[in-house]
Design a protein around this nucleic acid. Structure first.
Length: 361
DNA sequence: CAATCGTGGTA
DNA sequence: TTACCAAGATT
């Protein structure tokens, strides 16, 4: 793809004046610094601005500097992150804050290679941080940029995803403003997020639509190409609300599975039968296998909870077990409403809230 | 490198 | 209701 200097100049000029005129006012754009931009960029990975804003405000309020963040505990951080998803990001921010505090003495890194060593920071995020934070000449390639440039040049993958991605990086780089790379990065993201929308783009409001190949050929809806996803599978599990003689419930931290790792939840075990649902009688064998110390006591069957992830559906079959154990298992005993003091995923918040509403009725 | 990792919004 | 998708990185 050949892009001349004059093409680039026109493209960037249009975007920069668009940004100056109608760029969004966002929390991480006011009273900004590299730390806050880093936090915002991590939160915004695969997550919409609207969802991020309240999380960002709470996070920066609790951890206003990288040193404050590095002095926190992972639990404190996950408490503020719960419900936002992709929890490895929170752990990476924590790890990164420790690196910056110890290796860089709290000074935010100023080069691309330094940022690329921070966990969770890839090429696009590192470039965004430096372009926006320091106006260094770096190119970003996020979903917004991909949407804008695949439409503008009608770029297709032709079943060569690797070559496709390489082309996108090259085009994105050739278009990047050399004078104002920071504003340019924010301009093209604002355009993608508010005008060049995935569905129902508002091409009439677009500052570059007159030269947009997809607009000219009336094929905007064909770009970018849709991602072929694997068919979603259903995963069934039994969830145990284990209640002891002090009216406390057992919570455990997920240290085994990558999904929802480091978050807390009631104990669970997988339900292997695809076509049968777990019942009081049928869970007995597996219950004995997984939690022999809690075999005694009454068992109450609760309603199924379903939760959709991107790649699979979880069907959770909760049971409430009454037990009188003096053993101290791995985990912690809490009053049912005390789950709010530990980080819990949206999935298990659903389970707990449903149980609580049944308990009260 | 294709699969994995969360959640809420939207059509 | 279901499917798709968002300021991607990692393995």
């Amino acid at each position: 793809m050949i892009i001349s200097d004059s093409q680039r100049m026109w493209f960037t000029t249009q975007l920069l004046s668009y940004y100056k005129l109608s760029g969004r006012t966002l929390p991480w754009r006011t009273d900004s610094n590299l730390y806050k931009i880093w936090v915002s960029e991590i939160m915004l990975q695969q997550t919409t601005v609207k969802t991020v804003i309240p999380y960002y405000e709470k996070f920066i309020n609790a951890f206003p500097t990288v040193l404050k963040l590095s002095a926190a505990s992972l639990t404190e951080i996950l408490l503020l992150w719960q419900g936002l998803g992709y929890y490895q990001r929170a752990k990476n921010l924590y790890l990164g804050s420790r690196i910056i505090s110890e290796i860089y003495q709290g000074a935010m890194p100023g080069t691309l290679n330094e940022w690329l060593k921070i966990p969770g920071v890839g090429l696009s995020t590192a470039s965004a941080i430096l372009a926006i934070g320091t106006n260094q000449y770096h190119t970003i390639l996020d979903a917004n940029v991909k949407r804008v440039i695949t439409r503008f040049f009608t770029i297709s993958s032709n079943n060569h995803p690797s070559k496709y991605n390489k082309t996108l990086w090259e085009v994105a780089q050739k278009l990047t403003s050399k004078e104002e790379p920071g504003d340019y990065a924010q301009a093209i993201m604002d355009l993608g997020a508010t005008v060049c929308l995935n569905r129902n783009p508002e091409c009439g409001k677009c500052p570059i639509h007159l030269h947009c190949k997809a607009y000219i050929s009336n094929s905007v809806q064909n770009y970018p190409e849709k991602i072929n996803r694997k068919p979603k599978t259903t995963y069934k599990e039994v969830c145990l609300l284990i209640r002891n003689q002090h009216n406390k419930y057992l919570f455990v931290r997920n240290d085994k599975n990558k999904l929802l790792e480091s978050l807390w939840q009631p104990p669970t075990f997988p339900w292997p039968e695809t076509n049968k649902i777990p019942t009081l009688d049928s869970i007995n064998g597996l219950f004995t296998l997984h939690y022999p110390e809690f075999r005694s006591g009454k068992i109450v069957t609760l309603s199924k909870i379903t939760h959709d992830f991107t790649h699979r559906t979880n069907d959770v079959y909760p049971f409430c077990i009454h037990t009188e154990t003096k053993k101290n298992p791995t985990g912690t005993w809490l009053e049912i409403e005390e789950w709010k003091s530990i980080p819990v995923s949206t999935l298990y918040q659903k389970v707990l809230k449903a149980y609580l509403s049944v308990e009260q009725s």
